[in-house]
Simulated scan of single mutants.
Amino acid sequence: MDLHLKGKKVLVTGGSKGIGRGIAEAFIREGAEVGVIARGTEGLNNLKEELTGIYAIQADVSNETEREEAFKAFIKNFGTIDILVNNAGGSSGGKTMETPVSSFREAMELNYFSALHLSQLAAAEMKKHKSGAVINISSIFGRESGGKPSYNNAKAAMISLTKSMADEVIQDGIRVNGIAPGSILHPTGNWQKRLEENPEKINRFVEEQIPAGRFGTVEEVADTAVFLASERASWIVGATLNVDGGQSRSNF
């Protein structure tokens, strides 16, 4: 299926490894021109060596000034933006009563405010040519309990942002949607570490908690992202799609 993404200017945050890198690679395969933002210079250097033509920007998107400068660098290099993928994220802390408020703030800056701010910047550019797509990578735990509360709270806010912003900017030809991955296995992720540390426990988790009977893959999330960014998904607006092999317990 030709998704008509050739030549599209795509920015992916947290794009040097894991799901973000998989999404960047998927857009490149579709013929798009891709820039990525990431904090780690080592990961970005590896990315540039392994993916021909990638435009790498070193920045911490939890910092407002750095993300503004990173976005300006992308626009200077590409001239415009057609697709933004807000993938940067992470978690810290533990149970709510054991986690300081500062950790909740940090989680919101990294997972939510970075996506909000970059979406505002991107939408302002997209309005100029009356088209564009924003994709927010959240989590099934943005809809239900599980995992670390600081992360879940931020991802819940991201899902809410996806809907509210989508309703505002669709009149300008801009579609905002999201993806809520379940448990995804990849070499640099937490599930890989847990699997190596205690394979019996993790295999039991998969058997009991994921109806499909396996972890998801980066490619399965990336395939969803390129579809949502394409005109093939033209009537999908404000949705956050679970990509989880049935893991989520939510029925809406």
Rank of each mutant, 00 (worst) to 15 (best):
L3R: 05
L3D: 03
L5F: 09
K8D: 00
V10Q: 07
G14K: 02
G22F: 02
A24I: 06
A24W: 01
E30S: 03
A32T: 02
E33W: 02
A38T: 12
R39L: 14
G40Y: 06
T41A: 14
T41Q: 15
G43P: 02
N45W: 11
N45T: 14
N46I: 10
L47N: 14
E50Q: 13
A56T: 15
A59Q: 05
R67E: 08
A73C: 07
F74W: 12
F74R: 06
K76I: 08
K76W: 04
I81E: 07
I81C: 09
D82V: 10
I83Y: 02
I83T: 05
L84I: 03
V85I: 15
V85Q: 04
A88R: 04
G90L: 00
S92F: 11
T96V: 15
E98I: 01
V101C: 06
S102E: 14
A107Y: 01
M108S: 10
N111A: 00
L116K: 03
H117I: 09
A123N: 10
A124V: 09
M126V: 00
K128C: 00
K128T: 00
K128Y: 00
G132P: 01
G132R: 03
V134G: 03
N136S: 07
E144C: 12
K148L: 09
N153S: 14
N153D: 11
A154L: 05
A156R: 07
A157P: 10
M158Y: 01
M158R: 06
I159K: 11
S160Y: 12
K163C: 01
S164R: 09
V169I: 10
V169E: 06
Q171S: 13
I174D: 01
G178D: 12
I179W: 05
A180D: 08
H186G: 02
T188W: 04
G189E: 12
K193C: 11
N198Y: 02
E200F: 08
E200D: 13
F205A: 10
V206P: 00
G213E: 13
G213V: 10
R214P: 03
E219P: 01
V226S: 01
L228G: 04
A229C: 09
E231C: 01
E231V: 00
W235A: 10
W235D: 09
G238A: 01
T240W: 06
D244R: 06
G245W: 05
Q247R: 09
F252Y: 15
